[in-house]
Amino acid sequence: MSRPRVVVLDYGSGNLRSAERALARVGADVTVTADLAAAADADGLVVPGVGAYAACMAGIGAVGAAPMIIGRVAAGRPVLGICVGMQVLYELGDEHGVRTPGIGVLPGEVRRLAAPILPHMGWNTVTPPAGSALFAGVGADTRFYFVHSYAAKPEPGDTIAEHGEPFAAAVERGSLWATQFHPEKSGDAGAQLLDNWLRSLG
């Protein structure tokens, strides 16, 4: 069986080496690139992202990736958003009063968490929905590494975590999956998640 071909979208955001290595560790054939044809053609596309929402959207805009991502989602082709790479999949990000339109393949807005200490930084527990494919084989009370100050409100069926308030820690909508935490920084638990995603690529 050939290894699934995964593209990590390189639009100038942060540490991509960890995502590349973590995916390779669980068996993916990983390419880090801004090449849209390669990204469109991959078995799975990872949309990473750290930093400010507006800066990430500007980076995605600069490489012209939004239509490709929308096209993949519309065609039911797997996409995995990570951290701000999850947030930009929503319709809107609101940071410090700056309201930035997102890619809009997920309904809703990303807002600042109501918590006394931000960023939400560290290892936290999550509550996946029953039958989650993303969290298959992951034990209860398993912790994942978060670092973010903004998040989306959880919809029914989303994986929930809490920091000051409940928020969407992960979503699974058809072929569109995303995590607010960093699986590539979450040790063996994160590797299990990435392995689950690779298996879903079929």
Binding site: G14, V50, G51
Partner: peptide, 8 residues
Amino acid sequence: AERFGSQC
């Protein structure tokens, strides 16, 4: 913070 994000 503006260039890389506060998180780092």
